[in-house]
Computed example of a mutant assay.
Amino acid sequence: MRYRLSLCSLILLIAVVAKGSDVDMFLTPQLSANSVVSTSLGGAGSALSMGIMQGTINPALVFSYRSHVPERGALAVGYGYDSLYNDLLLPGGVSYANHEGALGFFYSIQRGTSGNLYEFTGNISGRLSEQVDSQGPVDYGLNIHYQNMSFSHELKDSASANIIKDMRERRLLFDLGFFQTNVMDNLDFSFVLKNLVGYRWSRTKEAYADEELADTLQDLNKSERNRGWTASRYRTMVVGIAYHFSLGQGVEISIPMDIEVFGLFDRKIKRTTVFRSGVQARVLSNYYLRFGFSRAPDSVPEVFSALRKGNLFFGGAGMIVNQLQLDFYRGSENWGLTASLDF
């Protein structure tokens, strides 16, 4: 009897284990567009192996992308605008792979008038199971994130006086991802657990915006420090597919779809499902057109019951010149571009 590891059986196992106002500044920054390809497809793409920046969506894709091309290294740099921090977004990454596995490093810098976020991510990925019968191999990946964030906004007290709330937080987070090609004919499959384990150090300060009032009411100025494991409410699960087919005349179509579930691991909050999908057309081997749609929030509130999903639309394009790939996306309030080089 031959042994075969399937991602579908892995999900069933995880599902059994899973049973046993203000913006949430933990989850909202994770909606930012570190992967231009994925964002132009509505945020979908955890099962679409295309460029190393897809490793920020699914850690397994860092190895999966390198496993079928002769070049072993990849480098990517990007630039964009993100509405959360009301300023710029600078993503980038580098990876090296061979037949045994891959190592990657990503960074993301978000800066704006409201605060800054610096994120550095290490990636380890490789092959978990080789191809059996018609199903493709199973790849795995682990992302280890270090985030350093500062954020400030104004509140009002009971007397309508302005209070400035300053928050600084450092986080260590782990994502686990899997990817399998050809689970069915022309259909790839992915499974990702985001924020699976994490630890955070935070400091919050509140003070009156008016200096004279702050001096008069010093006892109301307060500072608080906290540390501890991240709450289970921040763990999310992503299941994705990507279907590929050809229209002939040099046109290849890919349709990725992702479903992300919030609240699966915490019974105290309402379970919410987010849908993301898109269409990518590859024309004449070197050119890409992308359109995306998501039924998802553009930010996550601190009160999960107030999570509001909207209809979000995206578009983008790309081209390949030798080992260089250029990608661009545009959303209603954000845009970005990335240059990637295989070497």
Score class of each variant (00 low, 15 high):
10 L>Q: 10
27 L>W: 03
294 S>F: 01
303 V>Q: 11
324 L>P: 01
242 A>N: 15
29 P>F: 09
253 I>L: 15
189 F>N: 05
213 L>A: 06
93 G>V: 08
299 S>T: 07
135 Q>F: 02
51 G>F: 04
15 A>T: 14
200 R>T: 15
29 P>V: 04
197 V>P: 00
266 D>Y: 01
56 T>K: 05
305 S>Q: 12
28 T>K: 11
331 G>W: 03
312 L>S: 02
223 S>Y: 02
310 G>Q: 12
15 A>I: 13
206 E>T: 11
44 A>M: 01
312 L>W: 02
282 R>S: 11
28 T>G: 07
25 M>N: 03
114 S>H: 11
29 P>G: 06
160 S>T: 13
315 G>R: 01
197 V>D: 05
69 V>W: 12
38 S>I: 01
241 I>R: 02
182 N>M: 05
215 D>N: 15
186 N>T: 04
95 S>L: 06
24 D>R: 02
265 F>G: 00
265 F>W: 08
60 A>C: 14
313 F>E: 00
26 F>I: 13
176 L>G: 06
45 G>L: 09
68 H>I: 12
316 G>W: 03
112 G>F: 01
184 M>I: 05
77 V>Y: 06
11 I>M: 11
220 L>S: 04
280 Q>F: 00
152 S>H: 08
291 F>H: 00
233 R>G: 04
19 K>C: 13
192 V>S: 09
339 A>V: 13
243 Y>F: 12
263 G>K: 00
142 L>A: 05
172 L>K: 03
21 S>Q: 13
307 L>S: 00
237 M>L: 11
225 R>T: 13
114 S>D: 14
155 L>C: 02
307 L>T: 13
22 D>H: 11
164 I>L: 15
264 L>C: 01
130 E>K: 13
166 D>A: 10
310 G>L: 05
182 N>S: 15
24 D>F: 00
43 G>V: 02
233 R>V: 07
313 F>K: 09
92 G>Q: 05
197 V>Q: 07
182 N>V: 01
46 S>F: 00
123 N>C: 08
83 S>C: 04
328 F>E: 04
207 A>C: 03
336 G>A: 09
313 F>S: 04
193 L>N: 04
301 P>C: 06
252 E>C: 04
64 S>C: 11
147 Q>H: 12
212 E>Q: 15
119 E>I: 05
223 S>F: 03
276 R>N: 01
57 I>E: 09
114 S>G: 07
297 P>W: 07
35 S>R: 07
32 S>A: 15
123 N>I: 05
230 T>F: 06
296 A>F: 01
202 S>Y: 09
131 Q>F: 06
122 G>F: 07
249 Q>N: 14
10 L>E: 11
132 V>F: 06
112 G>R: 03
273 T>W: 12
316 G>R: 03
173 L>D: 08
277 S>K: 01
337 L>C: 14
96 Y>N: 09
